[in-house]
């Protein structure tokens, strides 16, 4: 699947693919992605989410879809105050204070609405009770959201996946702090109590250090990469590709990257890639 957007300066391309393991098991693509741009404020918002594959999370595809919807809404509302931040500390603090709490509150509200419209069956209810899980657990999902407003890039992430900022010189920057608890089998999640406390947030000053691109991906992408130092190699190659090709080329190829990573030659997992390409004059001046 592909989609594309370029109303506010940053060019957004999204590709998502169902994992080979999900094909084999008859599971859907549980990843979701959404983005929006506000031509008036020149803000761009992108969110990707990865619904958990375990049987405890049977509604995770819905959970991830709700996650990207509410996070885009929350981040778009936040863009105005982010753009007006005068300093990096303030931008980082604003992202930390605003995004996790509002996203979790709205996500839980949307889950409650969905649950009200589609109550658990008796067997689902029994499984929930046996596991001792809260009603939100079947909707469990990670979330990565990036908002670009004014001179700021702000990111918020819960769970696994990667945000790779690409500098014009081809080096990579990972703005969001890591989480040593994420071991490949277990992840932090929107469905956990106090999920807002498990968000990692960051703010980056684009005027001080311009970026050529931002790649936001679910863990199906990173888990497919052979190299241990793949982030730097990906950044280097994106810069080279951007020098050779226009945005239309990426619109064709990003979905192909997702397909290949999701295949049995890669991670075999659902893979979603959102690639944001900066306006050329933002990093060449």
């Amino acid at each position: 699947m592909t989609s594309e957007l370029e109303p506010a300066g940053w060019h957004v391309v999204v590709g998502t693919a169902r994992g080979a393991v999900h094909y084999a098991r008859g599971m859907p693509n549980q990843d979701s992605a959404e983005y929006q741009a506000d031509a008036e404020t020149a803000a761009t918002v992108v969110a990707v989410a990865d619904g958990h594959g375990h049987s405890r999370h049977a509604r995770s595809a819905i959970g991830s879809a709700l996650a990207v919807q509410v996070s885009c809404r929350v981040a778009a509302q936040f863009a105005g105050s982010l753009a007006s931040q005068p300093a990096a500390d303030g931008a980082a603090e604003a992202a930390r204070e605003h995004l996790p709490l509002a996203i979790v509150r709205e996500w839980r509200g949307e889950v409650a609405k969905h649950l009200s419209a589609h109550p658990y069956t008796e067997s689902e209810q029994a499984a929930l009770a046996e596991a001792g899980d809260e009603p939100e657990v079947p909707y469990g999902s990670t979330l990565l959201v990036a908002v670009i407003a004014g001179r700021w890039l702000a990111c918020a992430q819960i769970g696994d996946g990667d945000v790779i900022a690409v500098r014009p010189d081809g080096t990579a920057l990972c703005p969001v702090p890591g989480d040593s608890r994420l071991d490949g089998q277990h992840t932090t999640s929107l469905c956990q109590p106090d999920a807002e406390d498990d968000f990692r947030t960051a703010a980056h000053d684009l005027s001080g250090e311009p970026l050529l691109a931002l790649l936001v991906a679910t863990d199906g992408f990173g888990n497919a990469q052979s190299s241990a130092s793949w982030q730097g190699e990906v950044a280097r190659d994106i810069v080279a590709l951007a020098a050779e090709h226009d945005h239309g080329w990426f619109a064709v190829h990003v979905p192909d990257w997702a397909e290949r990573c999701a295949s049995a030659d890669g991670s075999g997992d659902d893979t979603t890639i959102a690639l944001l390409l900066a306006p050329r004059d933002s990093w060449t001046r």
């Binding site: 497919a224 052979s226 793949w230 190699e233 950044a235 190659d237 190829h253 192909d256 290949r260 890669g266």
Partner: peptide, 10 residues
């Protein structure tokens, strides 16, 4: 294909 990075594997 020109996929960025050093290749993919399981």
């Amino acid at each position: 294909s020109r996929m960025p990075g050093g290749g993919i594997s399981r």
